[in-house]
Amino acid sequence: MGFVLRRLSASLPVLLGITVVAFLLIHLMPGDPAKVILFGSNAGPDQISALRQQLGLNEPLWRQYFHFLDQLAHGNLGTSYLTQNSVAHELVSRTPSTLVLTATALLVAIVVGVPLGLIAGVRPNSLVDRLARGFSFLGVAIPYFFLALVLVLLFSVRLQLLPAIDDGTPQALIIPAVSLGWGYSAILTRLIRGRIIEEYRSDYVRSARARGCPEWRVLLRHTLRNSSIPAITTIGLQFGNILTGAAITEVIFGRAGLGSFLATSITNKNIPVVQGAVVLIGIGYVLINLVVDLIVGAVDPRTRLTPAIS
């Protein structure tokens, strides 16, 4: 419990930092935000000053920030410039799609990466190991958006087996999740392979065998468990990359998730949505890393004393 609280309090400054960045976004645009927002609408000086008033741009910066925080704390992220609908509502409605995509991609990464790394690590320089190394080399080298396009051309356009864009069915998840998860499975394979090679020859493994422990138990219970810490930490750290990847994947596959919402809102200068999405994604990232720390703590009790810094 103390560990959880410690980790939570360490996350607070990060969260505050995220809100500062999100808040400053509107001021990072060149020129007067009100004019930028109104550009093209033939707005007169009255409309511009009314919008400045409405956005609170005449207040000192620190007061604007506290107002922003206050609104945030009440779950009020403003209204979308494009649709006039509540940003919080639109973000929430698009969150499940992104969660499903990223979770499936992670699942792909784990289901492919862990066994492959394990087998390769147990039998280094075997055929399987060489294949696994080739796979992780390609996995890291091929960008997911390229892989996505190739898979779509093959499975949707040519063979017509899987949907090219999201149609709400589970099949529609396959190509996006595989293309997004593939690179991470490669990273996992490499990490796990390396650790297994090391751990599998260590003293505690030998003594486990000496105690008559069956080989599968030696492998899964002792070796894999001790080898998985860096992999789990990496999954947490890579989660930000998965979210970035999800944004591009969502755009390619026409998925109405947070990432594609953020991407189109940036194009439309829809600042409240961008701010809201940045905060939400930031919180998600912090939460995931918190969960990862907790898992690492559960898997390896040693880390509970000296919390991993992520």
Binding site: L149, A164, I165, V251
Partner: peptide, 14 residues
């Protein structure tokens, strides 16, 4: 939103 996505969806019949 993606131009390729629309073209792919047209080719796949979606």
């Amino acid at each position: 939103a993606d131009d390729n996505g629309r073209y792919n969806a047209l080719q796949s019949g979606q």
